[in-house]
Amino acid sequence: MGNTDTAAIVRLNTAYAQSKILHGAVEVGLFELLAEGPATAAEIRDRLDLHPRLLRDFLNALVALGLLERDDRHYRNSPAAAEVLVPGGPVFLGARIKTASQRHYAMWGRLAEALRDGKPTGHTAFDKLYENPVAAKNFLVHMDANNAVVAPQLAKVVDWSQYRSFVDVGGARGNVAARLVQAHPHLQGGVMELPGIEPLFHELMAELGVTGKVDFHAGDFFADPMPATDVIVFGHVLHDWDAAANQQLLEQAYAAIRPGGAVVVYDQMLDEQAPDLRSLIGSINVALITEGGGEYTVAEGRAMVEKAGFTFQSATKLSEGNDTVLVATR
């Protein structure tokens, strides 16, 4: 093994430290503070109520990571940080980063245990999560960040001119549905979600100016019938469940979709011929959270929709992000 290979393994061994530096900066509110203007280390310390012992090295590590810039004694956000780490931008990753820090980091710390017993090290008690309005909103903002890149591409890769309505099943607080009706005003949208999300759904629809263009359908998609519609969307849903549960969801969707309609599925689908690290990390992440979840190949996705009665039409890898959109018609 050459020195270059050794160095790469050494860097990989401590890559978690870089992630935690980013996590820490988001959790203490550093990027929001610097969005107001450049600040010295002393000003950052005082305004964020931080201890001075770690601060200098912490701030300079963020400079080395390209997240901050330093001019003499003042620190400011880098352009990349200003774009995605400050609330209010079109793509805000802060909630997603907090979820990684507060939920996923500890879960991945037990990977060796999961490899031995096959059990998840996290949890997906969505019904319990949604009982706490603050925790629910934080989680759903994280979901908005996850699908913000997908939504505008989904509006383009599916021929929505053929349809008049859709329902996003498991569509969180409706971010994707809202973006679709904004891009295609002829559509009437819908979101099927657990009842606890409804107030947060209406809040976002009002914020995005699409109240009345997207309906909320309260229900458990395993226990309750899906609303009749032209298109049902499953976005980052099927990867949460095992094959039997996915087959049940697709069969329920087939019953709800009007003849001539379609099912649209997007997940980080796997390519066994050309393994992609991001997709594989995503798959392991889901498996650590759920009892039977994980990503699947396009061929497996096609087999599932065809078994449910659909006719497979296409699978398109999106140019931004890491999702593949599968379309099958009824």
Score class of each variant (00 low, 15 high):
110 R>F: 00
273 Q>Y: 00
148 A>Y: 05
45 R>G: 09
38 P>I: 06
175 N>M: 11
36 E>V: 02
242 D>E: 12
142 H>Q: 10
93 L>Y: 08
106 A>D: 13
152 P>C: 05
133 P>N: 04
146 N>V: 06
200 L>S: 09
59 L>K: 03
104 H>D: 13
101 S>V: 00
188 Q>P: 06
48 L>S: 01
110 R>N: 12
150 V>Y: 06
211 T>K: 14
16 Y>H: 12
95 A>E: 10
54 L>R: 09
67 L>W: 02
139 F>D: 12
112 A>K: 06
189 G>T: 07
217 H>E: 08
219 G>Q: 07
220 D>R: 12
119 K>G: 11
174 G>L: 07
267 D>Q: 09
238 L>D: 07
13 N>E: 14
157 V>F: 04
19 S>E: 14
29 G>S: 09
315 A>S: 08
222 F>E: 05
164 R>D: 14
247 Q>L: 15
220 D>K: 11
209 G>N: 08
197 I>V: 15
255 A>G: 13
153 Q>E: 15
179 R>H: 14
58 F>M: 06
191 V>P: 11
132 N>Q: 08
304 M>T: 00
83 E>M: 11
125 A>V: 02
117 D>F: 05
111 L>E: 03
115 L>N: 04
2 G>H: 07
66 G>V: 00
86 V>T: 08
84 V>D: 01
164 R>N: 10
158 V>R: 08
88 G>Q: 10
167 V>T: 11
83 E>D: 13
292 G>W: 01
176 V>T: 14
290 T>Y: 03
8 A>T: 07
46 D>P: 00
77 N>K: 07
187 L>D: 06
131 E>V: 01
176 V>N: 10
112 A>Q: 12
154 L>M: 11
112 A>N: 10
199 P>W: 03
300 E>Q: 15
150 V>G: 03
63 V>S: 02
170 G>T: 09
117 D>K: 07
301 G>A: 10
240 D>F: 08
240 D>Y: 02
9 I>R: 14
51 H>M: 10
276 D>C: 11
162 Q>A: 15
184 H>R: 11
309 G>M: 10
300 E>K: 11
147 N>H: 13
201 F>P: 06
312 F>H: 03
11 R>G: 09
65 L>S: 01
293 G>Q: 05
228 A>R: 14
122 G>R: 12
100 A>K: 09
230 D>M: 13
302 R>T: 10
17 A>I: 10
208 L>G: 02
23 H>G: 12
17 A>S: 13
214 V>W: 04
131 E>C: 05
63 V>F: 01
82 A>G: 07
312 F>S: 00
29 G>F: 08
118 G>M: 02
15 A>K: 00
159 D>A: 14
222 F>D: 03
321 G>R: 07
295 E>P: 05
254 Y>M: 13
18 Q>H: 13
1 M>L: 12
283 S>E: 01
296 Y>F: 14
249 L>G: 01
28 V>L: 14
229 T>M: 03
89 G>H: 05
132 N>K: 09
158 V>G: 11
230 D>S: 09
